[in-house]
Design a protein around this nucleic acid. Sequence first.
DNA 1: GCAAGTACACTGGTCAGACCAGTAGCCTGA
DNA 2: TCAGGCTACTGGTCTGACCAGTGTACTTGC
Lengths: 246, 246
Amino acid sequence: MKFEPVAPIRAYERIVEQIEEAVVSGRLKPGERLPGERELMTQFGVGRSTVREALRVLQAAELIRSRPGDPRGPEVLAASPAALHRSMHRLARADHVGLAELLQFRMVLDGSAHLLAAQLRTDDDLSALDTALAAMRAGAEEGFEQFSHADVAFHETIARASRNPLLVVSAEVVRGVVLELIEDKLSHARDRSALMQSWLAHHAEVLEAVHAADGELAARLARRALYDNYAEYVPEEQRALLTPLL
Amino acid sequence: MKFEPVAPIRAYERIVEQIEEAVVSGRLKPGERLPGERELMTQFGVGRSTVREALRVLQAAELIRSRPGDPRGPEVLAASPAALHRSMHRLARADHVGLAELLQFRMVLDGSAHLLAAQLRTDDDLSALDTALAAMRAGAEEGFEQFSHADVAFHETIARASRNPLLVVSAEVVRGVVLELIEDKLSHARDRSALMQSWLAHHAEVLEAVHAADGELAARLARRALYDNYAEYVPEEQRALLTPLL
DNA sequence: GCAAGTACACTGGTCAGACCAGTAGCCTGA
DNA sequence: TCAGGCTACTGGTCTGACCAGTGTACTTGC
């Protein structure tokens, strides 16, 4: 005989449950509006503070957004990875997750994305990738920031070609967290133009493998590129974590 | 000349920022207590409802927990993947992410975990894995639920042996979401004992590869095992997403 | 008739004050 | 010494109020 631990259920939690259920089940679609707070408090039969606490939670989860003055009421938002990003970011900062682990994880995700992209890509994907690489070449002339944006776009195109939204989102999130951790070091990098040339060469190589539909090769090259470009920022004694992926 | 879009910053948001910063930076450690709401409202110079909305947000992010009646105040929690789990779960439900994509992602994560585990495992890891497999054998005699728990434990041991907390957490989350999606189908499965025997065989094989430090083999076997056991629940026309990983 | 401008009703954000159920820890009495 | 009750305080909720800001409908001037 086993019993479950009980916890008192607060009123605002039940409101969150009801609205969340309506949103994730699709009964409330993005762009639709919730009733205003005063209306909700009569519908749920609670005080306004209770309604507001529930809305705060839903807002923190990026499910709704409310703006003062708008008589149409709080807006239901489209699903977005923003909340996932925040959770992962917090976990990475708090849970003694260092650059080594993040980079390792990124090598895993990016490698897999390349593997899948190489084998599942359509002709549209290929031309989008060609365009993205060309944009990187052009960006290298204009400055580091443009180049960086083009680089991100390239990786996103690869991720989308893998046909897996989870992979897209996770890769995006991890990339963001990695970049945040090293952006200061990167901005002090000595020879940026050499950096950009190195990245360009790596990307061209990878793209060739994707064209050839050689998933294994594309994955290995992508992981190697990450290693070559970022490993120097990882403490030497932790690089052993990364080498098994090469 | 470019300008940033501005959004009004609400009072509760700045409170969230301050407390969150203190928590994730480690200035407030798990188990420590925040001042009570009435004390916080004087410290921040705002009303109690504002303080409460901030605490609600932090509570939704699993950073703190408050219980009525406790004179020590809200408790700072240890970092946990619960918030990540919720975000990913919501995204999977709302963002038309189906079983195929989830399973594909799980094959990626589990495969990589096996790869890393096989190459980074210590002797302690190996004996823990041996114990976990023995527990699965024993569980198979006792019933499906025990077996299932032992199976989860085995995968977690593998993930931990990969030495990457992000991999541990993500794999755990995705496994949970996959299981939630098919638990009803699984509970109606015809021949559970055959299922369990098949899983056992797969795990034994994988473990052998881990012992032999053959990462590639362990990864391939792990992905194959997932495919063999779960692909039948994936619509046939989507299985092409999974085969590139075999 | 129509565009520009204004007024208003209503929104969410915040505050103050109150009450309640429930708890931790003290304090008392045996 | 210790079990029991007491109490001051907690967080959860409600009411009612005010404010700055917004969208809409109406008015005004052309």
